[in-house]
């Protein structure tokens, strides 16, 4: 583990997270309640309260490269119970945005799943669950994902085999297109 050079640290990182999230990170007094309540703590490489601390001391690389930000499900436990009313889940969300924008994704499968989901929405206007699964399996190479569930699901008619596109799907595609244009500016 490296020694954190606090005075040399990236102040702009702390400021950027504060600006994006609209949260006052100085308000975090490191009580650890977010970590205590987080259902995903067991799966995290860096606990959420530690992420808050690392943001406070400007440790951009450490934070953007951690796995935890991809594993947060935005369940709102942390936000709801924070004694300082910090929207911790919001902060996690924004850090994830920053990691994505920096081209970082330490949990590639999660990112691919998200991308596949949004691809499906962009293409059809709604999520086509079967198509999403196929796309995810193709991109990750994990062709056996949930394959054991197929015999349970298919007879129940839960997964339509044909996509259901909406009439205004071009409007949805346009949202994505404009989003990419704004982002690339």
């Amino acid at each position: 583990m490296n020694t954190y050079k606090i005075t040399a640290a990236d102040n702009t990182f702390t400021a950027e997270v504060e600006k994006r999230s609209g949260q006052d990170l100085n308000a975090c007094y490191q009580c650890g309640n977010c970590t205590a309540g987080c259902p995903f703590s067991f799966a995290y490489d860096i606990q959420v309260s530690n992420i808050m601390r690392l943001v406070q001391i400007g440790q951009r690389d450490k934070v953007l490269q951690c796995h935890s930000i991809w594993l947060c499900a935005s369940c709102q436990s942390c936000t709801t119970r924070c004694p300082n009313n910090i929207d911790v889940a919001g902060v996690m969300d924004h850090i994830r945005h920053m990691a994505r924008e920096a081209g970082l994704a330490t949990e590639r499968k999660v990112k691919v799943f998200v991308d596949s989901f949004l691809d499906s929405v962009e293409r059809h206007g709604r999520v086509y669950e079967m198509g999403l699964m196929v796309s995810y399996m193709a991109k990750t190479g994990r062709v056996f994902t949930d394959v054991e569930l197929a015999p349970k699901v298919l007879p129940k008619g839960k997964l339509p085999l044909k996509p259901h596109s909406i009439k205004g799907k071009e409007q949805i595609a346009a949202i994505f297109k404009r989003f990419r244009e704004v982002k690339s500016k």
């Binding site: 583990m1 490296n2 020694t3 954190y4 050079k5 606090i6 005075t7 040399a8 490191q30 309260s49 530690n50 601390r53 690392l54 001391i57 440790q59």
Partner: peptide
């Protein structure tokens, strides 16, 4: 910084 679990240095 026990909350970050790390050794830290500050140039004062």
């Amino acid at each position: 910084d026990t909350l970050a679990g790390a050794q830290v240095e500050v140039e004062a």
